[in-house]
Design a protein around this nucleic acid. Sequence first.
RNA 1: CGGAGUGUAGCGCAGUCUGGUAGCGCACCUGGUUUGGGACCAGGGGGUCGAAGGUUCGAGUCCUUUCACUCCGACCA
Length: 567
Amino acid sequence: MRVSQLLIPTSKETPNDATLASHIFLIRGGFIQGVGSGLYNYLPLGKRVLDRVRTVVKEELDRAGCQEVSLGFVTPSSLWIESGRFEKYGKELLRLKDRKENEFVLGPTHEEMMVNLVRQTVKSYKALPINLYQINLKFRDEIRPRFGLMRSREFLMKDGYSFHASQEDMKREFDHMEETYKKIFTRLGLEFRVVEADSGAIGGSGSKEFMVLADSGEDTIVVCDDCDYGANIEAAVRAEKTCDVEPPEAIYARFHTPQTSTIEALSDFFKVDPFYLIKIVAKRALYDGGESRIVLFAMRGSETLQEVKACNAVLANELVDLSEEELAEAGLVAGYMGPTKVPEGVEVIFDAMLEDATNMICGANEKDYHLVGINLKGYEANYKDIVAVQEGDSCRRCGGKLRYTKGIEAGHIFQLGTQYSKPLKAEFLDEKGKSQPFVMGTYGIGVSRLLAAIIEQHHDDKGCIWTKESAPFAVTIIVSNIKDEAQLALAEETYAALQEKGIEVLLDDRKERFGFKMKDFELIGVPLAVVIGKNLAEGSVELIERDGLEKRVIAADKILAEVMGCL
RNA sequence: CGGAGUGUAGCGCAGUCUGGUAGCGCACCUGGUUUGGGACCAGGGGGUCGAAGGUUCGAGUCCUUUCACUCCGACCA
């Protein structure tokens, strides 16, 4: 491709809303163009990268025995109502009506559609297992789209679904997909980590995320320094935690504690380590049909609530904050809430760490009063793991120190079981002629997000540095002075020769100055550049690798061999 | 959803307080010079000032309504 004919609107200026390297360089390099909140157009260069990434994904999946299909983007709501997700998925689901007032949704993920496809076509165990996938647009009406392609509303995703006659076979495929995903991310040149994860809105049990490691990642992951344990903070576990400080021995009593509505103040007031205080976080848990209830989450004062774990503990769709008015209406006092003697209609969940805890201090559910000498030994209650693992906690597997790191969720695989096949009545006949629901797995890769992830991991202050398998072109030929006939002639000759060899080559034949073209090369991030410039007079040209920007002077008649050697 | 802010040329912005000819930089077009690190000179094109309504002789500017976009937050009760 000749740059003079390529639609490639590069810019010196950083868009004012872009903060992440990937967002800045993808826009400045003319890969994408913003068209609305969380909506992007792909320009020729961006489309090429997208296609290359997509090709890697497709090749590995096809090699792993998966079959590509393409499902409708607009989905009848009836399927979503059948599965029960129409309400559960919440506001991220964009709903729309056609001219006849029929309701549809724009697919944010396609379990329903794929189950529907398979239930109509697969009737026998003999046709199993089967693994179908598509690489298609998705739409999620995010609360707050940001960071360019990282969190957009419309995005390209590979979503795969496998169907099995047994749990064991599904697990086998799950492991197989984990290996396949590792190959995909490795081929794309990404540094990543496979971690245990929460299953979120998709549901099911046993899920793993593929995290591309980057400081700008939106997810916090907990990793062990000594073993390969890794988990999303939403699902991380740790070894039991104790406290070295002596517990405050006291007999049960009600204590006047004015102006101590925070854990910190309470800790100061009683001169007690927060470990021995009970912290309450009150939330409103939302359920289907607009129902909701107030839940108090009780944990040690040294801990912090992990909202996803908390949400799972009460099987809610979502947890939202409460205003002081709402608390007052429910008979609760902010800053003085306790897990005992709660008003009617308020649910309490205890963190598992509180089981059999003694010598605790908690709120009295009464303004300006706390209770001391609380003893939970043998106390009957609902104990669940609802707190976040903290840095420095011990690894449950090996006892090593856990620490936080940041990751970009680029892939997620789930063991679904019969979560969707049951409500959607997707069944097959087994060897005994008995009807059984399909056992399913589901596997996703954020293809458009991968472009952002690659740049987050591979860039410098000048621009993008695409990896070998993701680059829009393999090499670019820069003609320093387009009016120099010798330079242009050699460039044209080289361009034709590389094309002949089937190499994706770019020829920068624009009537621009040298510096301008170099800046563009650095911004766009093609892995290799051949600079044909003034030292052609001495019979040599330059080879520049984008990663590191190292220059090498080579003989002009050796270009082809040298370039081929670098690819 | 809570808080803050912004909408003026393709992009980045000034002008709004104090109403009176629509501006600047980049980009773009024409001509010329220039060609190893985002050149220079000269000329030029491009605007329903987010939208609707109002006040006024006159509104980018004042008033009302509305839409869009962006940023911060949504764990310690």
